[in-house]
Simulated scan of single mutants.
Amino acid sequence: MHQTRQIKSFYTDGACSGNPGPGGWGTVVYFTDGSVYEMGGAEAQTTNNRMEMQGAIQALKMLKACSQKEPVTLYTDSEYLKNGITKWIKGWKKKGWQTAQGKPVLNQDLWEILDELNLPQVDWQYVRGHNGDRGNERADRIARTFASGKPPALNQTPGIETPQTLKEIINSPVTGVADSRQSSELTYKSVPLSLATSDLTMIDSTDSSYIGAMEELPREVRVDQLRNLVETLRITDEIATKGYLISSSELADLMDVNASAVTSRGDNWHWRNWIVSRVRREGNQILWQLERVDQVNATDQE
């Protein structure tokens, strides 16, 4: 390692077309002297959450390889990633990688890698996506471009690292991770697909990529995911029936997407059995209402 510059911050992001489907991750590295280094990669079959995690993994691998002890801020627009690594992971580990409901933690293989790489000097910060933040916007663009199959031109300041050296850093195996399923070449090889429950609620069951991915999973896994899906739909129906208003971040958590993916859809849109409508803004929060499609149609016919 000949790099003497001090890393100031990372911006990481992930994207996926189809969810599951082709995905990409992007990482932008800012140094204290103002220089920038960008990284990115793609996987043929993955989910949005896994790409969000992958971008952070690459940042942490670079930080570890640089042996930097000074504080670094890692910005992500994924509350799933930020909360998972700073809050939820402690409980998951104590419960043997089980959730509070006694269910297996989704994406455990990547959570274990993140846990292994995470360092005390890393300050994890959430940044709202698509809100004009230069670093976040650039990481998002890199991730989306890789996901589309057209790798972008990356800004890689000379003198920080040669491309080959950085490639070795990114592809180096993570030691001490108990999960034998992890790949030693995270950038260029897909790790086993793990579909989140809410990933399933976001895709059309007639989609060929979805059907293919599901058929590759063991039957018991598919049945368990179906149970989880039904529970998610039950919760959604209860929110709609009782007329609860939920924020963009709460709706995004329910659907397992970034909050920006909710707000970018407009004021009124269709999701599975519900019509999602923007009601009002309270402070910095947008509140949404869910209505069953069949109930809306019945009202229209009266």
Rank of each mutant, 00 (worst) to 15 (best):
H2P: 04
R5T: 12
I7H: 07
I7M: 12
I7S: 10
S9E: 15
D13M: 08
P20K: 03
P22K: 05
G23W: 01
V28W: 06
T32M: 14
D33W: 12
E38T: 04
G40L: 03
A42E: 01
R50M: 02
Q54I: 00
I57W: 02
M62V: 15
L63D: 11
K64D: 09
A65L: 02
Q68W: 10
K69P: 04
E70K: 13
L74H: 01
Y75V: 03
Y75S: 06
D77H: 09
G84Y: 04
G84E: 05
W92K: 07
K93A: 14
K95E: 06
G96F: 12
T99Q: 02
Q101P: 00
G102M: 09
V105I: 04
V105G: 05
L106G: 10
Q108F: 01
W111L: 07
E112G: 11
I113R: 11
I113E: 11
D115G: 04
E116H: 10
Q121S: 14
D123N: 14
Q125A: 08
Y126P: 00
Y126C: 02
G129A: 14
H130F: 12
N131Q: 15
E137F: 12
E137K: 11
D140N: 15
A147Q: 04
G149Y: 10
G149F: 10
A153E: 11
Q156L: 09
T157E: 14
I160M: 11
T162C: 05
P163I: 03
N171C: 13
S172T: 13
T175L: 12
A178P: 03
S180L: 08
S183G: 03
S184M: 03
S184V: 02
S190Q: 01
V191L: 03
S198Q: 13
S198H: 07
L200T: 02
M202P: 03
I203C: 10
S205E: 13
T206K: 13
T206N: 13
S209W: 02
G212N: 14
M214D: 07
M214L: 15
E220C: 09
V221Q: 13
V221R: 13
D224R: 15
D224S: 14
L226C: 06
R227L: 10
V230Y: 10
L233K: 10
L233S: 02
T236W: 01
T236D: 00
G243D: 04
I246R: 02
S248C: 04
S249Y: 07
L251Y: 05
L254W: 09
A259R: 09
S260W: 10
S260E: 12
V262G: 04
T263P: 00
R265L: 09
W269H: 06
W271R: 06
R272A: 05
N273E: 12
S277A: 12
N284A: 12
W288Q: 06
Q289V: 03
Q289H: 10
Q289N: 09
Q289S: 13
L290M: 04
L290T: 01
V293H: 05
N297I: 15
A298R: 15
